[in-house]
Amino acid sequence: MIRAVMVMNTLGKPRLTKFYDFQHVEQQQELIRRVYAVLCSRPENVSNFVEAESIFGPDTRLVYKHYATLYFVFVFDSSENELAMLDLIQVFVETLDKCFKNICELDIVFNYSKLHTILDEIIFGGQVLETSSTEVVKAVEEISKLESAANAIIPKSVSGWLSRST
C-alpha cells in the first residue's frame, strides 16, 4: 500500500501531507523534516528513488519527483511497483495541472481542500483507485458540483461562505 503522500516546496515547507498509517503530529513533522533533508541533498538528474527504511521503518520505499519549486513524494511498501508509483506521481501532477490550468505552487497553497479531493480520487486508504487523470478530473468536477449544490440551499450563515464557494 501507499504509506504517505507529501508535497513540499524546495525550502522544505510542506504543502500537502497525507499519512495513510496513523502517525502522531510530531512524528509527521519529524518525518517531513527528514525526507526534506534527504531530498534537498540530492543533485538534479539522478534516480528518483531514495532508501527510506531508515526514515519510515522496514519495507518502505520512497519515490519523489521534482517539479519547479515542488517535491512530490510517495512513500510505499513492497506491494507497489516502483515504476508504477513514479507514473502515479505523474498522474497526480497531470490531474492537478488539468484542474488548475497550469498549476503552480500558489494554487496548491490556496486550494487545500480541492487538493485533498483530487488525491482522494487517486489514492484511497493507501490503495490506488484510479490511474487515469481524465477520470479523476471528471470525478472532481462532479464532487464540486455536488458541493456547490449543497451550499446553495444553506439558509443562513451567508457571508464569507458564499464568496468561498463560488
Binding site: 515547507k13 510542506p14 501531507t17 503530529v25 510530531e26 481542500s113 444553506i154 443562513k156
Partner: peptide, 25 residues
Amino acid sequence: TDPHTKSTALQKLTYLNSLHGVDMS
C-alpha cells in the same frame, strides 16, 4: 452549534494540523 461554523473551524484546524504540526487530538 451551527454546523457550518463548526465545520469551517474544523477544516482550518485540519489544515494547521497537517501543514503546521498543530496538535488536534
